[in-house]
Computed example of a mutant assay.
Amino acid sequence: MTKLSLSETLKQMAGMHESRSETDRLRDVYADIEMALQSGVSRKAVLEVLHKDGFAMSLKMFDKALYRIRKAKRSNVTTKCHADEHRAGAIESETSTDQPPLEKPVTWPRKPMTPADFREIRNQPHDWVALSKPVIKK
């Protein structure tokens, strides 16, 4: 079996209706569904087209599946943005010599704050006058 035919066989297996949930199959065409919805096509009309392709979900299930897919996409984007910000901050702190290094490295995701953490922050000395002045970027 050649590599190309193996690849085609695996793609066909991935697209088989029997072995995949409707939400997984919906995820495959999510971009097209969003494009149709944003251009003004009703959810009912989109669902009718999906029914013709073998989907059996109700409108309520369709809405819930779209909600979960959208939420997962937002979560992935947010996590990726936080990781990029963290990397950029680490690079900036390595190259910047005018700022003292952080006492504790910041890691993502952060652990939930506890009352002891708030007490520690409150008991640290702060220069409130300097913090109240506007930041002037050069």
Results as ranks from 00 to 15, higher is better:
L4K: 14
E8Y: 05
L10M: 05
L10Q: 03
K11G: 02
K11E: 03
Q12R: 14
Q12G: 13
A14H: 03
R20A: 05
R20E: 07
E22N: 00
T23V: 08
D24F: 08
D24G: 10
A31E: 10
E34M: 04
Q38V: 12
S39E: 15
V41S: 13
S42E: 14
A45G: 08
A45M: 09
V46T: 02
V46I: 04
V49R: 14
V49N: 15
L50P: 01
L50G: 02
L50D: 03
K52V: 07
K52E: 00
D53P: 07
G54K: 04
F55C: 01
S58F: 01
M61G: 13
F62R: 13
A65S: 11
A65Y: 14
A65H: 12
L66T: 01
L66W: 00
Y67S: 14
I69V: 00
K71R: 06
R74N: 07
S75D: 05
S75C: 06
C81F: 13
H82P: 11
H82E: 15
A83L: 12
H86T: 15
H86R: 15
A88P: 08
A90R: 06
I91V: 15
E92R: 14
T97F: 12
T97H: 10
T97I: 10
Q99F: 08
Q99L: 10
P101C: 05
P101K: 04
E103S: 09
E103A: 11
K104W: 12
R110E: 13
R110I: 11
R110V: 13
K111M: 12
K111F: 11
P112K: 15
T114A: 10
D117L: 02
D117V: 00
E120T: 14
N123G: 03
Q124N: 08
P125H: 00
H126N: 06
H126L: 06
D127M: 05
D127G: 04
L131D: 02
L131G: 03
L131T: 02
K133W: 00
V135L: 01
K137L: 11
K138L: 07
K138W: 08
